[in-house]
Amino acid sequence: MGCIYQTEENPHFQYVLGLADDALILGQRWGEWLSKGPTLELDIAASNLALDLIGQANLLLEHAAELEGKGHTADDLAYLRDAHDFRNHWLVEQPNDDWGVTTARMLVFSLYQYCRYEALVKSSDAHLADIVAKALKEVSYHRRFAAEWTIRLGQGTEESNQRIQRGFDMLWRFVPELFETVCWEQTLADDGIAVASGTLQDAWEAEVTLILTQANLSVPKGDAHQFGSRHDGHHTEHLGTLLCELQFLQRSYPTASGAVW
């Protein structure tokens, strides 16, 4: 594909692409847990989460491809863009590390994703509203799973409390990005297509504070000091290596050269 999307280019497409990329990248991260989980039951849970998220990504990327109008498929968008053209939040591309970090990441993100999808069910983009209505049921389970594990680890042993706290402390710097509302997103929100991310912050904070308190954990402090924006194609170093794995076969044996998968 080779193109680099400009921030102002087709905002409706870029918005849906952002939703899709979050689901795709986080789904890819959950897939990495397969056969490495702390119990067999958690291997099964991890694969469910991965399946839900990749399924959401597939539907959202199909919709994004339609909005883009350049004849691409969902697979083209997933497999043939370089990091610069990915629009996911930095949080979801962070490595799994241990079960504590993975759980902290899932709690922060699934609470946010739930708020987002809940608002988008009313989107004037009927196709998007349909996709998120289905996904909302899945994410409702994801946030429950993450909340239960946050509490279990927070209240479990001294070690588990420290490990999950470490997860939140490490990842908290990626929180402000979740609520950044760029001007074109505000315009889309005014048109009833999108939800302005900033409007979700209060509800998210209330929920996350409640859960962390119940888990005997402290809400991390400090500013993000994040330089660069996903909307301009900026990412952490981890996305590149994630894409190496994700895209390897399509890059080595391109569909455009006759490969059939």
């Binding site: 702390p38 119990t39 079960w99 509490i151 279990r152 680890l153 209240q155 042993t157 070690e159 588990s160």
Partner: peptide
């Protein structure tokens, strides 16, 4: 790697 997670689940 999962020992501490299982221990936490049992303790909880």
């Amino acid at each position: 790697d999962g020992t501490w997670v299982r221990d936490a689940a049992s303790a909880y």
